[in-house]
């Protein structure tokens, strides 16, 4: 049975460096996905994810398992870093273009191919059309997410892309449960309107 995050943190606090490596391996993919989806930039996402782990590494001595859970603590740090990054970009007035879809599509290319084979219609000529449609839809969704106001985008990504519970999201964002629920519903409604031409 895999060790819990808190147990790994305790081991690391006692000097076991392998425990920290295990934590990184466990959370690197969800963290990069979260940041990339939230800030809409894959390259910066790697950087910020690493920065998050460095912050965790530095603050490990102050971590207490009876307080926040490791996962919510990690997302809390990452969210703050993302907000700072977006604020700095706003100051520089240099917003990066959709990097996720262009370079990020490489990684899910295999998955896409498998999907296409599984759902291949009788007429093979239709295949590229379907692939194009899917890619367009994915681009549109990512674009729509990135256009949401930050206070709605953050809980939406945590809920619908990271699969956190409402309680966990409330803990990450330090919001009341009712506020979290209402923001997620509002974000989904906004997204529905933005995706009207596609759905």
């Amino acid at each position: 049975m895999p060790e819990l995050d808190d147990e790994l943190m305790e081991r690391y606090q006692k000097g076991d460096e392998n425990a920290f490596t295990l934590l990184v391996r466990r959370h690197q993919q969800p963290l990069v996905n979260f940041i990339a989806r939230f800030i809409n930039d894959r390259d910066s996402a790697e950087d910020l994810a690493q920065e998050t782990f460095i912050r965790i590494f530095k603050a490990a001595n102050r971590y207490k398992s009876e307080g926040a859970h490791f996962k919510t603590w990690m997302y809390h740090i990452a969210s703050n870093l993302c907000k700072n990054e977006l604020r700095n970009r706003g100051r520089r007035d240099r917003y990066r273009v959709d990097n996720v879809v262009n370079s990020g599509s490489d990684s899910d290319g295999d998955t896409e191919q498998i999907d296409l084979i599984a759902s291949a219609p009788a007429n093979p000529e239709l295949q590229p059309e379907i692939a194009l449609e899917r890619k367009e839809l994915r681009n549109a969704i990512q674009q729509a997410i990135s256009e949401l106001p930050e206070q709605y985008r953050l809980p939406l990504v945590l809920r619908d892309l990271q699969g956190l519970s409402y309680d966990e999201i409330s803990e990450v964002l330090e919001l009341r449960s009712g506020t979290t629920k209402s923001r997620i519903n509002r974000a989904r409604l906004m997204l529905k309107e933005k995706l009207k031409p596609f759905i």
């Binding site: 391996r25 969800p30 790697e46 899910d108 989904r188 409604l189 997204l191």
Partner: peptide, 23 residues
């Protein structure tokens, strides 16, 4: 119905993987 579809579409977005050099 549109609300349900758009939520499903968001949830089905592919996961973005870190580069092999991340670690």
């Amino acid at each position: 119905a549109r609300f349900q579809e758009s939520v499903k579409a968001v949830q089905e977005l592919p996961q973005i993987e870190p580069s092999p050099y991340f670690m």
